[in-house]
Design a protein around this nucleic acid. Structure first.
Length: 442
RNA sequence: GGCGGGGUGGGUGAGUGGCUAAUACCACCGGGCUGUAAACUCGGCGCCCUAACGGGCUACGCAGGUUCGAAUCCUGCCCCCGCCA
C-alpha cells in the first residue's frame, strides 16, 4: 500500500489471469486497467470460519490470488469471525448455526495455518471483522441498514428463492451482506474475490464504498469484483462445500486426496484441470479431444490430475507415492503398505477404551491387542471403521470385510499381530502386538 | 390480535388406533460389473445384547393423558407457513 509498485503483466499473463478459471470480472475494464497501472491493489478474500477446513473449492480463488501476489499485489484476508457468530445463510436455504467465540477462534486458527500452502505470507494481511464490528453500536447498524431496502436485498437469488417458496428468512440474515459489504469499506478493498455465488454480496460492497465516499477500487469507483467458478464436489452435482461433505480439503493426506480425486466423475475432470492446475489450455484441449474420441482411457488423465493436485498441496514425492499406493490397493487389490496404516494410531487393550482420529475414506488405523479370538464387529466399530457395531455386523454379513485379503463371513475371527482388516474399499485396520507396539510412528 | 394450514428417520414425503423400526423416492453404505468414474444390477440403511435363533431399548415438535395397544385419539405448550388486521 506504500511506494512499492506492482509489476505490470504481459499480455499473455493478463489473458491468463482474466480468463483461466474466471467466471466474471465486474467491471472488467476497471480491473484490467488497474493491473496495467502498476499500482498495488488490495485484494480482499473473505472467509467464513464455520469449519476448520479449506476445500479445493477455496483453492481456486486462492491460486488466482497467489498469481496476483507474485505481481506485487496484496491479499487482505478477512476472517468472518463476527458474522460466523450471527450465522450465515448457506446456498441451500439452510441457516448455519451461530458459533461460539471459542469455536470461531479455533477454526480461524486452523484455517490460517493452511492459507500459506497457497498464499505468499509476505504479501498477505490478516484482518478480523471483530476489529471493526466489536466497536459498532446499534446506531451504526441501523444507519448501515437504512442505506438499503428490502427490495434490494431480495434481489439476491438465495433470498428471492426462499421468499418465493415461503421458506424462512431470518431478519439477521439480511444483515449479513451489509456486514460483508462493510468489510470492504473497513479494509479499503480494491478488488473482492469470491465464487459466483458471492456476486450480490460483493457488488453490494462496491456500492457501499461509493456511498460512503471511499475512493477504493482500481478506478476509484469502489471495489471491482472477481468471481471464480464454483468447483463441483465429489458427488458430481453440488458445489463443493464443507457442509455438504462432498469436499477435498487442501490438507487431506496425500493418499486420501489422491483417492478422492480419482473418485470424481469423469465429467468433472476438465473442470478440475482448468480450475486447479497449471496444465496449459492447449493441453486441456488435447485431453478433451482424446476423451471425446475415446482414444485414451480417461483414467490416465485422471491419474495425472490427481498427481498434479497432490503435488501442489504436498510434494512431488508424496504424489508419486500416493499414486503407487493407489495402484497397489485399488487397481491390483493388494493390501496397503504398512506405512500408510499409521494414521489415527489406536491402542485397545482388550475391548475397553476407545480413542481415535478422523476416519474418512482412506481411513486406516492400528489396533493393539494380544492374538486370539475376537468379535469382529466390535473391533471394527471401536476402531471407528464403522459408525456402530450393528453396522459393522451388517458389513460383515454383506461380505464387505476381509482379513489379509480374504473375505470373512463369521462374526468372530482369530486375530494375530500383523493381520490387516479391510472394511469396504478404503478402510483398513492393522493389528499390532499389544505388549510390544506402543510406538506412534506417525 | 383474528382465521386457516402444518411440524414424521440426512432430505422430500406416505401413513390417521394394532399387520409400523414406520410406504416410496433421493442421498448414503456394501456386493457384482468396471477405470475405486458414470451407468447398470443386487443388497443394506435407529441403537444395544447374541456365533446364531432370538431378545431388549429408543424414535414420528415438546410435555402430559385415554387405551390391552398411539406417529395415529384427547389436553396444554413450542415452532413454521398463509390470509386478514
Amino acid at each position: 500500500m506504500t511506494a512499492a509498485k506492482a509489476r505490470i503483466p504481459s499480455d499473455e499473463e493478463l489473458a491468463h489471469l482474466t480468463t483461466r478459471a474466471v467466471a466474471e470480472i465486474v467491471p472488467y475494464q476497471e480491473f484490467v486497467d488497474g493491473l496495467r497501472s502498476g499500482r498495488p491493489l488490495r485484494l480482499k478474500q473473505g472467509f467464513d470460519p464455520t469449519r476448520p477446513v479449506i476445500t479445493l473449492g477455496w483453492a481456486v480463488g486462492m491460486r488466482k490470488l497467489r498469481r496476483l501476489q507474485n505481481l506485487g499485489h496484496t491479499v487482505v484476508v478477512v476472517i468472518g469471525d463476527w458474522t460466523a457468530r450471527i450465522g450465515d445463510p448457506s446456498g441451500k436455504s439452510e441457516t448455519r448455526p451461530m458459533l461460539s467465540e471459542e469455536e470461531v477462534k479455533a477454526n480461524s486458527d486452523a484455517i490460517l495455518r493452511q492459507f500459506y500452502k497457497v498464499l505468499d505470507p509476505d504479501r498477505t494481511e490478516i484482518r478480523r471483522q471483530s476489529e471493526w464490528f466489536d466497536a459498532f453500536t446499534l446506531t451504526d447498524i441501523v444507519r448501515l441498514a437504512a442505506r438499503f431496502t428490502v427490495a434490494q436485498m431480495l434481489q439476491r437469488d438465495d433470498f428471492a428463492q426462499r421468499f418465493q417458496e415461503h421458506a424462512a428468512i431470518g431478519v439477521h440474515e439480511l444483515l449479513y451482506p451489509l456486514l460483508q459489504g462493510y468489510d470492504s469499506v473497513a479494509i479499503q478493498a480494491d478488488v473482492e474475490f469470491g465464487g459466483t455465488d458471492q456476486k450480490f454480496n460483493n457488488l453490494l460492497g462496491r456500492e457501499l464504498q461509493r456511498m460512503m465516499g471511499q475512493k477504493a477500487g482500481p478506478a476509484g469507483q469502489g471495489q471491482a469484483v472477481f468471481l471464480v467458478p464454483l468447483l463441483v464436489g465429489l458427488d458430481g452435482s453440488k458445489k463443493m462445500s464443507q457442509s455438504l461433505g462432498n469436499y477435498i480439503a487442501i490438507d487431506d493426506p496425500p493418499h486420501e486426496m489422491y483417492g478422492k480425486l480419482m473418485s470424481i466423475p469423469d465429467s468433472l475432470m476438465l473442470d478440475y484441470f482448468e480450475l486447479l492446475t497449471d496444465v496449459p489450455d492447449e493441453e486441456l484441449a488435447f485431453i478433451r479431444k482424446s476423451i471425446d474420441e475415446r482414444s485414451a482411457n480417461p483414467m490416465e488423465h485422471k491419474m495425472r490430475l490427481a498427481r498434479e493436485i497432490v503435488a501442489q498441496f504436498h510434494t512431488e514425492l508424496a504424489a508419486k507415492d500416493a499414486e503407487s499406493e493407489f495402484e497397489r490397493v485399488f487397481r491390483k487389490r493388494e493390501l496397503p503398505a504398512p506405512k500408510i496404516l499409521t494414521k489415527g494410531e489406536l491402542h485397545l487393550r482388550g475391548l475397553g477404551e476407545e480413542k481415535s482420529e478422523d476416519t474418512l475414506r482412506l481411513a486406516s488405523a492400528t489396533i493393539a491387542l494380544p492374538g486370539g479370538e475376537y468379535p469382529l464387529a466390535k473391533i471394527i466399530h471401536q476402531s471407528q471403521l464403522a459408525p456402530s457395531a450393528t453396522e459393522a455386523r451388517r458389513l460383515i454379513e454383506q461380505g464387505a470385510v476381509e482379513i489379509n485379503g480374504e473375505r470373512v463371513t463369521d462374526q468372530t475371527a482369530n486375530l494375530e499381530p500383523g493381520d490387516i482388516i479391510r472394511v469396504g474399499k478404503h478402510r483398513f485396520l492393522r493389528i499390532v502386538d499389544a505388549d510390544k507396539d506402543r510406538s506412534t510412528d506417525g
